[in-house]
Design a binder for these strands. Sequence first.
DNA 1: GCGTAAGCGAGACGGTACGTCTGGTCTTCCT
DNA 2: AGGAAGACCAGACGTACCGTCTCGCTTACGC
Lengths: 207, 207, 207, 207
Amino acid sequence: MSATSTPPTTEPPEPPAPRARSGNRRDEAARLAVLHAADDLLAEQGFAALTVEAIARRAGVAKQTIYRWWPSKVEILLDTLIEDSAKTLPVPADRPTAAAVRGYLHDFARFLDRDPAGKVLLTLLAQAQHDPGTAASLHRRHLGPRRAQERAWLAAAADAGELAPALDLDAVLDALTGPLVYAAMTGAPARPELVDTLVDRLLAPRG
Amino acid sequence: MSATSTPPTTEPPEPPAPRARSGNRRDEAARLAVLHAADDLLAEQGFAALTVEAIARRAGVAKQTIYRWWPSKVEILLDTLIEDSAKTLPVPADRPTAAAVRGYLHDFARFLDRDPAGKVLLTLLAQAQHDPGTAASLHRRHLGPRRAQERAWLAAAADAGELAPALDLDAVLDALTGPLVYAAMTGAPARPELVDTLVDRLLAPRG
Amino acid sequence: MSATSTPPTTEPPEPPAPRARSGNRRDEAARLAVLHAADDLLAEQGFAALTVEAIARRAGVAKQTIYRWWPSKVEILLDTLIEDSAKTLPVPADRPTAAAVRGYLHDFARFLDRDPAGKVLLTLLAQAQHDPGTAASLHRRHLGPRRAQERAWLAAAADAGELAPALDLDAVLDALTGPLVYAAMTGAPARPELVDTLVDRLLAPRG
Amino acid sequence: MSATSTPPTTEPPEPPAPRARSGNRRDEAARLAVLHAADDLLAEQGFAALTVEAIARRAGVAKQTIYRWWPSKVEILLDTLIEDSAKTLPVPADRPTAAAVRGYLHDFARFLDRDPAGKVLLTLLAQAQHDPGTAASLHRRHLGPRRAQERAWLAAAADAGELAPALDLDAVLDALTGPLVYAAMTGAPARPELVDTLVDRLLAPRG
DNA sequence: GCGTAAGCGAGACGGTACGTCTGGTCTTCCT
DNA sequence: AGGAAGACCAGACGTACCGTCTCGCTTACGC
């Protein structure tokens, strides 16, 4: 379960217990309740059920509370994605070895296939096709920063002679992650050998 | 302009000229008007503007006419995608050479970047993330048949010794098309050298 | 019960039976359901409960159907008032005698005190104090036409020598009905001798 | 301008200057600011704009300050009505002559037509139709005490032989004030001859 | 003179209703 | 028969107020 989701032992459709009010400070419990509710609704009922009204109902929160803090439901998902992916799938910063890169890509494949936050990423990528605002937010707040970290990490590995990227790093990262994302989007199961082959052919020093 | 779209000399926002009525046979003119209208609306205004009412209005057709023949607007897009991609980007069946494969992938990259039908494909892939029904239709009517043709074509090329695929053909096709789709989805410009590198590293017989 | 209300044997809080759809003509059943629901809600729960959402819920009608045909809930009440008062309290047109005038005023007092439509009139008069639009509609559609009929009727009685109005007819009508309305508004019980005295002192030819 | 309103030279929409804080005693300045704001809002924008939030905003006061001291906005209006009507339209207590009664009624008609506090009375009478709580407060705090004074005053005049009421005093008072209130409620202009005729026919000793 | 108590402005909170919008269904009329 | 027209139910949209609550501050009182 993703980091912002309620533990699996709790009851999705129960009346949310009344939280203590916070006065004139932002209520962290309300913020978390919204993120959890959005996460859970997406996982359980799909994107079509992810309406502001449903999130508010499930979180035990007023619609106005959501509109006060988030400009759209997409930004709610983006918040959950950022918080969850930082915990579940951090970009390594310290071990620029070939094996570490391979491991990171395996983790990424598993993230897309199994982690609810992976579904959130696919959902946001999809929504970005429909809405330029989503595309901009997704790049600015998630894809851009993450890609920058990945690029720096790969560059360090290349400098260390661990890797010999076949192309510029952005193109290589597209070539490595693109197949995983595309497979996840078309419902294909995870294929570990795909990751291994990609790393071998696109990153490994030849011969 | 995609094959089902009105030629550029015609007027998108004009009052649609009254078509001759067809009596008790399905009206082919109405069918085409719907496909054109959907195509044009998606290209001009984006997915959010692609409502059944807008399509009906633009096509000069009753909503009921659309609901009678298509279960959803997704199926309309699928119809245009199938008809257009068959014309614009046919899977070659005759020349199983390495160069032909490379050319096909370059064509595919250009299709995603420039052809309105490429945008339709991205839109349907996106919608498939939101709606399992779309995912099923997209596979059954487009991705599945096309992938079968591509697989057969690559198999012929491999048999002919033109290629030495690094993995099973489905995985290789994901590895080849995935980066192109992912790049198009994240707004990256077309990179011909990406295609070349992918073909070299994943398909070329190792020298 | 007022004319547009459901008979007392029917069930207020039951799920409204699905009505037959009307196609592209206005649905008279929906119109009546709205009028009944508004009438009943006002009588049972008061003006505060008379929300468009509650009317729609009770009538088994979509909110849009209400907004399509009525610019505001006030116009719904005005419709019920006009239909009901035409049946319950018609302005006599035929017997311009002093006794008939006295009887009409007694009927008016009873209408205000007991008829649900009397409550509707008081409600609309009240709402007219809050909203100029209500005031205008109330005058144009109810008070104006009704006052014109009453004036003509009194004029005929005066011509016949039955009455000797103490003032111009509009002022006399204010003097006759004003006390009844004011008493009803302040919750006073009906006082028959008030009507009799008013008629004696303001209309009767001085003996 | 009514007694609780800001002088006309002040600017309604400017940022209210911060008042000195009062410590743990009730802040009279805040109390007056609320009464003024309510009065002004009602006069300028009508009842619909008279929300607690708007009063608080305009008075430069926290909502909680309003809810601490008034159970509802109706009670705010009632406070202004009581204070203003005691100044603008006191019930005479000393000169129980026929002419004084006639003068009081003329004053009352002018109060309804021109004084902002007259609008407040009409507003509260209207609101009493919608809300039993308002009706009770209006009677208990304004209509009841005032009617008692008027009754006593008329009784003194009758005892003195100045008047010969046609009915019990409450009914006579309804008959005298009802037409004036009803005319004001339906937007009729003041008619001095109406007052004179009512006094003549309902109060004057029959010559 | 310092703690306690209350009033204050501010503003977040869970709610309800608003009036608008679109989707998908249904019926009637017309060609 | 089939297309055009449009009314219908359903329900999400984003906004405005409701009345409650807590916060951090300020002032007055009493020990």
